[in-house]
């Protein structure tokens, strides 16, 4: 079961990442209600205390809001959601660039490589 998680990162952060992913994709939209802590714990097969930490962390990041007695909801503040989207993209790009640089690729090669790849993926030949 622990195989579902990266052993070197706290589980509460990995679950937060999965929620962020769903929000960015639009599977969870502004104002949507998150499952209860217990239901999320069962779904991920982790301790409910871990999920509470996830929800607290997302709340500190202003991405979700807890309404007393009602549950936890994705924020309706569009600027926060846009920030989240931008931040995740920068993280992915940083990781890609760091690895490419470590292998010795130049900036031009990376840009060309990306253009080529995106072109092929979309079936464009021009």
């Amino acid at each position: 079961m622990v195989d579902n998680f990266d052993a070197s990162k706290p589980i509460y952060k990995q679950i937060a990442d999965q929620f962020y992913w769903k929000i960015i994709r639009g599977d969870l939209q502004a104002g949507d209600k998150l499952p209860s802590v217990r239901d999320t714990a069962v779904a991920f097969r982790v301790n409910p205390n871990t999920v509470s930490r996830t929800y607290n962390e997302m709340e500190r990041a202003n991405v979700v809001e807890t309404k007393r007695g009602l549950g936890t909801f994705v924020t309706e503040k569009q600027d926060v959601l846009n920030d989240l989207k931008g931040k995740k993209m920068r993280q992915q790009i940083e990781q890609f660039v760091t690895e490419m640089e470590a292998m010795g690729y130049t900036a031009a090669e990376m840009v060309n490589g990306l253009k080529n790849h995106l072109g092929k993926e979309r079936g464009e030949n021009d």
Partner: peptide, 24 residues
């Protein structure tokens, strides 16, 4: 996960199945 009230109840479990139990 479903039935223990982890905020109130103190649970102590002995196990050999460390990998399997680790997430809880």
């Amino acid at each position: 996960i479903s039935f223990v009230d982890v905020e109130k109840q103190t649970v102590l479990i002995t196990t050999h199945e460390v990998n399997e139990m680790e997430p809880i």
